[in-house]
């Protein structure tokens, strides 16, 4: 077990290292720099001072080593655009709003999706199945930003029930009202994906021989569904759950921008338009670390559900 863990840990760090390196050089190849977004016509001397201040005048490879050295000490550096603001603080500020919305969306989306998928499989070919599959196709094919705009039009402009955009960092009724529409917009796609996955998976399991064995034993109804069908159907759903858990913190670029939520995604998008190199890198590191870690968690959860792919014994 420990050997497996070590191997896994090593490859996780290697992946992270490779990603950071690629992103570091990649964003520097993109035309534009942080100054361009703040002031276009600065005197050359001022520009030179700015570059010198942040070390951008040094050769790229030297900059890379300096950055990696700081990163190893857990220092993400300072923003190039919001002067004097450490990246760490910007990120920590942006995470809570993203988490609120995404936890809501994930809980609502996954439970509803799984429920609908199971329902559709058990009622295969009947109207509940057709209804669920219709919802699933809508959910997959309508982009979340279209749905978001439609929701804003309906609930804010026409009915005037909910605020169009905005956010408050205080938890409570007001925050909840702000979070309703983004949650729905985000969860619709999740419902679509999970209901399809679960339906296919349950149908597959229902056709397995061991379900016949269980029926021949006299198992029926709830205990057949719970002990024999569902546990075996959850495996594919777990695969897609990992990246989505990482997504709780990472947030959604599009939805956060549409609803004006100062979350991780929105901050990331503005960092890219501003060419705020340190911030882009900092957030990239966080996103990647989360994805890599979530995949590792998925591998362990797999084993809890399915003994055939258990990576180590208790």
């Amino acid at each position: 077990m420990s050997k497996y863990m070590l191997k896994r840990l090593f490859s996780m760090f290697l992946t992270l290292f490779v990603v950071i390196t690629i992103v570091f050089f990649l964003i520097r190849m993109v035309p534009g720099d942080p100054l361009a977004s703040m002031a276009r016509n600065l005197p050359e001397q001022v520009k030179a001072n700015f570059y010198a201040e942040y070390g951008l005048d040094k050769p790229l490879i030297t900059q890379y080593f300096i950055y990696m050295k700081h990163l190893l000490h857990g220092d993400f550096g300072e923003s190039l655009v919001y002067l004097g603001q450490p990246i760490k603080e910007i990120i920590l500020r942006a995470i809570p709003p993203s988490m609120v919305i995404n936890i809501h969306a994930l809980l609502w989306g996954v439970t509803t999706g799984i429920g609908l998928g199971i329902l559709a499989a058990y009622k295969r070919g009947k109207w509940p199945d057709h209804l669920v599959m219709f919802i699933a196709i809508l959910g997959v094919s309508i982009p979340s930003f279209v749905l978001a705009t439609a929701l804003q039009y309906l609930f804010s402009v026409q009915l005037n029930w909910l605020p169009t955009i905005g956010w408050t960092s205080e938890p409570g009724m007001k925050q909840f009202k702000y979070s309703i529409m983004p949650t729905i917009a985000l969860s619709f796609g999740i419902i679509a994906v999970y209901s399809r996955y679960m339906r296919a998976s349950v149908l597959d399991v229902l056709n397995q021989d061991y379900i016949l064995t269980a029926k021949a034993k006299g198992v029926s109804g709830f205990s057949l569904a719970y002990k024999h069908v569902l546990r075996n159907s959850f495996i594919p759903a777990i695969t897609i759950l990992g990246p989505q858990i990482a997504g709780i913190i990472v947030g959604s670029f599009v939805i956060e921008s549409i609803f004006g939520i100062p979350g991780f995604g929105q901050v990331y998008v503005s960092a890219i338009t501003n060419r705020d190199f340190t911030q882009i890198l900092g957030q990239t590191v966080i996103i990647n670390a989360l994805y890599i870690f979530s995949l590792f968690v998925v591998d362990i959860v797999y084993g809890l559900v399915d003994p055939r792919i258990r990576v180590f014994n208790k």
Binding site: Y210, T213, A216, G218, H228, R231, N232, D306, R308
Partner: peptide
């Protein structure tokens, strides 16, 4: 009747047992 009075053994033991139990 199922399992108590009449029981059954299936053809393929590889797939006739629940893998997660």
């Amino acid at each position: 009747i199922r399992g108590d009075e009449i029981a059954m053994i299936f053809q393929d033991p590889m797939s006739a047992l629940n893998p997660t139990m």
